[in-house]
């Protein structure tokens, strides 16, 4: 019963939050600017959660995650601007084409992730960090050179389709599949590799294969997040996806607590909102980035494992009880007692 509740509650809570926001919006307590910030936070949540799969759960170190985001953003934006720009589109096709473009963006990022991951993830150590750093810059510099998509000026006129409802929907899906990933053999293999690669190898885990799977999965989610971002901003340029963006994601991840989905959500949400919230400082506005940095330093000093290091709220956890048949417990009361204690 409790587990049933656990699986229904999160979407219900999210829908309630959505309606609460709409209510606050109609009462003019929130304004469209707030909603914009919230949607950015949602994009960042998706990116941070996906980065967490590679850095937090698999123990690799990817520092070019914005590269995947940009591939997804450009991939999906090219499709929608091409289809919506030239001809008159049936309005009913707007949403399916949008969703399809997100999928294509995600797949594009995943394919590139596979091509980058396969040669580099075989090697142990910090090589992945260097390669992903270079990868992010290569993507950015290449996009700056392609004239048909606006080169360094960027792409304009992308249809604005992403709204809060879509953002919530995709965050929800991301959290759901990421949680399921972590609690499957794929997630277990990733965690085994993170905790002790030699032992993982000795236990028959094809470490390269599972690292690549985690990497491609993360790249896909980042690509979709990029697509959502493009259709939220309606304008993208290569420099929005520079190392600075990847760096921000790393900050969200480690401040929130790597290896915890809850931590990624909170890290991205709080740290996206704080710099904006600090704008009330008026004359002292220039100080807000300093305050932001001080907050980060304090988190790292007093909670080096991040706000939620290794912990999860129950929605994002799967207890073994949820799939154990009850008769087991009755068969062996001693066992059941011990497990309940």
């Amino acid at each position: 019963m409790k587990n049933k509740l656990n699986s229904i509650l999160p979407p219900v809570v999210l829908v309630l939050i959505y309606f609460l926001i709409q209510l606050l919006l109609s009462k003019k307590i929130l304004n469209p600017y707030h909603i914009q910030i919230l949607m950015f936070a949602c994009v960042n949540i998706m990116l941070t959660v996906s980065l967490n799969i590679v850095n937090g759960f698999t123990g690799q170190f990817c520092i070019g995650h914005a590269g995947f985001m940009s591939l997804g953003a450009y991939g999906s934006a090219i499709i929608t601007t091409m289809l919506f720009g030239g001809m008159k589109m049936d309005p009913n096709l707007r949403i399916p084409v949008f969703l399809l473009s997100l999928l294509v963006g995600g797949i594009l990022a995943a394919i590139v992730g596979f091509l980058i991951g396969l040669p580099t993830l075989k090697i142990k150590g910090d090589y992945l960090a260097i390669v992903t750093l270079a990868f992010g810059e290569i993507v950015r510099s290449t996009l700056r050179l392609i004239e048909p998509i606006g080169a360094a000026r960027g792409m304009i006129g992308i249809p604005k389709i992403t709204n809060l409802a879509w953002m919530f929907f995709f965050v929800m899906i991301t959290l759901y599949i990421t949680r399921n990933f972590v609690y499957s053999r794929y997630g277990r293999a990733s965690i085994a590799i993170r905790d002790n690669e030699i032992a993982a190898d000795a236990m028959g885990i094809n470490t390269t294969r599972y690292k690549v799977i985690a990497f491609v999965f993360a790249a896909f989610i980042a690509g979709v997040a990029g697509g959502l971002y493009a259709h939220l901003m309606t304008f993208i340029q290569p420099d929005s996806f520079s190392f600075v963006k990847s760096n921000e994601l790393l900050v969200y991840l480690y401040a929130g607590g790597s290896g915890s989905i809850t931590g990624s959500v909170l890290g991205a949400l709080v740290l996206t909102i704080i710099p904006e919230a600090l704008r009330f400082l008026g004359n002292l506005t220039n100080w807000r980035i300093v305050i932001y940095a001080v907050i980060l330093v304090l988190i790292m000093l007093y909670k080096p494992s991040g706000l939620f290091g290794g912990k999860e709220i129950s929605f994002l956890r799967i207890n073994r009880d949820s799939f154990r048949k009850p008769f087991n417990k009755f068969n062996d009361p001693k066992l059941a007692d011990k497990q309940n204690s």
Partner: peptide
């Protein structure tokens, strides 16, 4: 292993289940 090499941040049962990945 001579010097224990467990998946130290995972639960006991997950450690065992990890060996079944293949």
């Amino acid at each position: 292993f001579q010097n224990i090499r467990l998946f130290s941040n995972a639960s006991v049962i997950d450690n065992v289940k990890m060996a079944n990945t293949a």
